[in-house]
Simulated scan of single mutants.
Amino acid sequence: MKGPLEGIRVTDLSHVLAGPACTMILADLGAEVIKLEPPDGDDARQFGPFKNDQSGYFISINRNKKSVCVNLKTEEGKRILRDLIKISDVVVENFRPGTMKKLGFSYEEMKKINPGIIYCSICGFGHDTLPEYSSKPAYDMVVQGYSGLMSITGPEGGPPVRVGTSIGDLVAGHHAAIGILSALIHREKTGEGQHVDISMLDGLVYFLENAIVRYTMTGEIPGPLGTAHPTITPFQAFKTKDHYIITPIGNDKLWALFCEAIGRVDLIEHPKFKTNPLRNENKKELIPILEEIMLTKTTQEWMEIFDKYNLPYSPINTVDKVVNDPVVNYRKMVVEIDQPLVGKVKITGTPFHMSKTPGEVRTPAPLLGEHTDEVLKNLLNYTEEEIKTLREKSVIN
């Protein structure tokens, strides 16, 4: 099947995670993504785990792309980038603000080369921001802390905890892809390109939904609650005889079924627990009662009981269980690729399931510079002699 973005060409100047996450989405959806890497490659190629000197980190985020290795600090390298901009629809970069301008490739300069170009920048605090933040370095951990996310993550009363994945980078990548797709639709209507300015901080603040409105409406400063929900009770993980089980009881109908399932129908109409606002108000009294009950059976036993009552629940799966889970595999969210120099390796699949133009993992992550000659010769019409000269001058690898 052809992807919905077939015919869209992306010049990808990004590195490590936020930008590559964005361009992987576009590539999964059928765009041609040409990843420009410096002579030493994307920094992510140096991050483990490794097999045969190949980075699993890089492999996990760069499938479906082409790699062109070019030194953009040379005039000849800049010419290659200019030539690519002329034939591209989108450019993505995630350098510090000001870096691309120093190279001579700000948005203002790029749109002179290609007026319809969609230029997406991803950085920690945004390009249109306060002057003191314009060149501030930012990693995922920085924005997890700055955004307030870490202040509400972790056990109640405990120290702040980093979310277990690089969510600041990944959210920014997803928001960048949404922004690019929206800009492509706008260009289709008007012929205008534009600058898409994505901030990692914006993305995590956007995801604070309930925490921000709780503070603005009540003055309460949210803190970490472990697995518990701040305004719905019971909506958390409970320790069982052998592990844990999550019980998100999101309304009063589910509360009645839950009480039947655990053999405590007397709690259904209890004056302190009858409605969610009451349960939430009296959670310090309710939760210990439920904790004691949940300890009486194993997780599997509770799962079988909750299934009978059609209650929402989940064990807390470890990654090995997720990789081998039947529904995860049925949805093709773990796929096997044949990675050069590595062999068979399993990576995450694509979440874009569409009846006509689904996302797809078509090719493995590229070796460094694997497609340099192909792109220069077939797309940019460089001659064999020109390519040979560029390689001799160390402009390309």
Rank of each mutant, 00 (worst) to 15 (best):
M1K: 02
M1W: 02
P4F: 02
L5I: 09
I8C: 14
R9A: 08
S14I: 07
G19T: 03
L26F: 04
I34M: 03
L36V: 07
E37V: 04
D40V: 05
D40C: 08
A44Q: 03
Q46T: 12
Q54L: 08
S60G: 15
S60V: 05
I61K: 01
N62G: 08
N64V: 02
V68K: 00
K73H: 14
I80D: 05
I80L: 07
R82F: 05
D89N: 13
V90C: 08
V92R: 00
E93L: 09
R96Y: 02
M100N: 08
M100T: 11
K102G: 09
G104N: 04
E108C: 08
E109K: 05
K112A: 12
I113H: 04
I117Q: 02
F125P: 06
G126F: 02
L130W: 10
L130E: 15
E132W: 12
K136P: 03
V142F: 07
Q144P: 05
Y146M: 13
I152L: 07
T153W: 09
P155F: 07
E156A: 15
V161N: 11
V163T: 13
G164F: 02
T165Y: 12
S166P: 06
L170V: 10
A172H: 00
A176T: 05
E188L: 13
G193V: 07
H195M: 15
V196H: 04
M200Q: 11
G203A: 04
Y206M: 14
T218W: 03
G226K: 01
A228Y: 02
P234R: 00
P234H: 01
F235Q: 04
A237W: 04
F238H: 07
T240E: 07
T240M: 05
K241M: 13
D252R: 00
A261N: 01
V265S: 15
V265R: 14
V265C: 14
D266R: 06
K272M: 13
T275A: 12
N276I: 02
L286H: 05
I287A: 09
I287L: 13
P288R: 02
I289K: 03
E291S: 13
E292N: 14
I293V: 15
L295Q: 15
K297M: 11
T298N: 08
F306D: 06
K308I: 05
K308T: 10
P312W: 00
I316E: 13
N317F: 07
V322N: 09
V328G: 08
V328Q: 06
K332Q: 14
I337M: 06
K344D: 15
K346H: 08
S355P: 10
P364V: 02
P364Q: 03
P366L: 01
G369P: 03
H371K: 06
H371T: 06
E374A: 13
N378M: 06
L380I: 10
Y382T: 05
E385R: 05
K388A: 14
R391P: 07
K393Q: 14
